[in-house]
């Protein structure tokens, strides 16, 4: 991937992320967050993670953002105008964020991680078709032989082959979450 594109996408992601943190109007913040997530999905695409990028757009930029906007408009939250800023919290927040960034920068540049790039670690699709062998489904090996990355099929295979139990636990979590939301939003009957 051209480096210019990477920097553009990183700028979109971080710039709109900055607008979420600094915006005064909740609706602006929510829309900036959606834009930031779209930039992040594009970064996922640049890492050959097509399925994750799709899920990111569908779940985050779609469902989660609609939920946020719905709640903001339902509660009719006004922009915080004229309120004085919470200075100690802002100073400590910025300080912590800068420290964390410097620390991550030091760790990343100090280890051998920085050397790996898509150019020197290319995907070997046709060789992979022979290596993953009988464990994979024929549809996966056929796609690999044709030179395309069957991203969603491989994730699905991994999920259902190795993490079937975990998938059911997550399904149960979603059920419990749904019931919890219904219980929480039910208006309590006023005491007589």
């Amino acid at each position: 991937m051209p480096s210019l594109l990477f920097y553009l996408l990183a700028l979109i992601t971080l710039g709109f992320g900055f607008m979420v943190v600094t915006g005064r109007n909740p609706v602006t913040c929510a829309l900036s967050l959606a834009a930031s997530f779209v930039g992040l999905a594009a970064l996922f695409l640049s890492l050959d993670a097509y399925f994750i990028a799709t899920i990111q757009i569908l779940v985050y930029a779609g469902a989660v953002m609609v939920l946020f906007l719905f709640i903001i408009m339902l509660l009719d939250i006004k922009a915080e105008e004229g309120k004085k800023l919470n200075l100690p919290a802002i100073v400590s927040g910025v300080l912590l964020a800068v420290l964390l960034t410097l620390q991550i920068f030091a760790v990343v540049s100090g280890t051998g991680l920085a050397g790996k790039s898509p150019e020197n670690t290319p995907l070997a699709l046709t060789e992979a078709a022979g290596k993953i062998g009988k464990a994979a489904l024929p549809t996966i090996t056929n796609d690999l032989k044709a030179g395309t990355l069957p991203d969603a099929k491989l994730i699905g295979f991994t999920l259902f082959d190795q993490y079937g139990f975990h998938l059911q636990v997550v399904g149960l979590l979603l059920l419990v979450g749904t019931i919890g939301v219904v219980v929480l939003s039910k208006r309590e009957r006023s005491a007589p």
């Binding site: 990477f6 927040g93 964020a97 964390l100």
Partner: peptide, 25 residues
């Protein structure tokens, strides 16, 4: 050339932004 380090730094900066927001807002 874009390396893994670049992605990790972007990820770290996004995390730090979120952390600053959680503390300050």
């Amino acid at each position: 050339m874009i390396t893994l380090g670049h992605y990790l730094v972007v990820s770290g900066m996004l995390f730090a932004l979120g952390l600053a927001g959680v503390i300050a807002r």
